[in-house]
Write a protein that binds this DNA or RNA. Sequence first.
DNA 1: TAGATTGTTAATCGATTAACAATC
DNA 2: TAGATTGTTAATCGATTAACAATC
Lengths: 215, 215
Amino acid sequence: MEKGISGAVIRRLSRYYRYLGELTEKKVERISSGELSRIMHVTASQIRQDLNNFGGFGQQGYGYNVKYLYSEIGKILGLDFQHPMILLGAGNLGTALANSPDFEKGGFRLVGIFDINPELEGICIRGLPIRMISELKDFLSSQKVEIAILTLPKEQAAQTADLLIDNGIKAIWNFAHIDLDTPEDVIVENVHLSESLMTLSYNLTEYRKTHDKKS
Amino acid sequence: MEKGISGAVIRRLSRYYRYLGELTEKKVERISSGELSRIMHVTASQIRQDLNNFGGFGQQGYGYNVKYLYSEIGKILGLDFQHPMILLGAGNLGTALANSPDFEKGGFRLVGIFDINPELEGICIRGLPIRMISELKDFLSSQKVEIAILTLPKEQAAQTADLLIDNGIKAIWNFAHIDLDTPEDVIVENVHLSESLMTLSYNLTEYRKTHDKKS
DNA sequence: TAGATTGTTAATCGATTAACAATC
DNA sequence: TAGATTGTTAATCGATTAACAATC
């Protein structure tokens, strides 16, 4: 529909969404791009430009209705539909994600948990029993699943991704330290934590270099 | 030193670093920007441009020495120094990060773990006892700590961040769903998982809209 | 109506890609 | 030397910011 919206715009949309949610909780009814710009530390121009990629949600002389804009951005992000998810990898990270209640607000609902470690079989997380990956095929043929969360170590991640794709999964949230090799109709969103930590390290190192710590 | 290197460049640098590490393991000695471009799916031009922000690491007619480039990028990212870290929040996510052995390669060494839940006091993760946040001040005055990893729920994250800053912490790796309000000499790197998941949701929704699922 | 603020076009800025001379 | 490939400048492309007419 819309053409060529960049990833950066979508990231910002998620961020607007978070702030609008907080404003709703604070019973704020309307907000102008100018006010929001001050709160969020982005330019008002960018906010208006971002929103106008998807249509006009405001009103001249008034601004934006917080509740309405919140709900419209939610629709753009697809948060108005259920997204059944399965988790691959029931380690600490997987467990953390499974227990994250925030995701349910956006329609992200965990429906299955899988691991390769037989010792974990049957143990429940959030009421869901850990299953073996050997059951994955049957599970996927009997259940509608949209998103697979991949928190397995990289050795197993690549082949598990293949298995997921072979069985119809179209979206992977990848926490493994590899770049998955996937067909173009499969959406992959990577979370590479070590890249994030290295960015922090770079910024810190650089800051010190330029600010020459003495004392 | 270098002027205005964008975050995008640094992200890519981390990614080059990962691939170069893998190439080293595979005993590959040299690589050209052209070959690397094919493996990593970025343009050769971009690779050369990125690297030349920091100096010339290659040789005309030859390419780049894998080991040397790996080590040089490591230095740029600050991975040639130790980075003592403390963890704030010993939940599943915090535990997952504490147990992540990958980070130690980059000099990121966990030296302390803190939580607010008194029931966790003294329990060990990776040989480190969980301490109470009330001990934080003393701890920081007796130990050199560079980076604080913040995995507390957002209710406690903001005030804990203030406490960290008051006690001299200059870098925060923030996993809480808030934008920390910090002085400009404090480096913050945010990992907002819900923004990542929403991006995935958007891309999936959008793909479906444009590819009109029938059947 | 007058004031405010959007939607949108135009101007600027920065990042990516292309091209090629330098050089190993 | 001839071939390959870098380092680097120039051209293109895209994203951000500024400006302002439309309009509530």
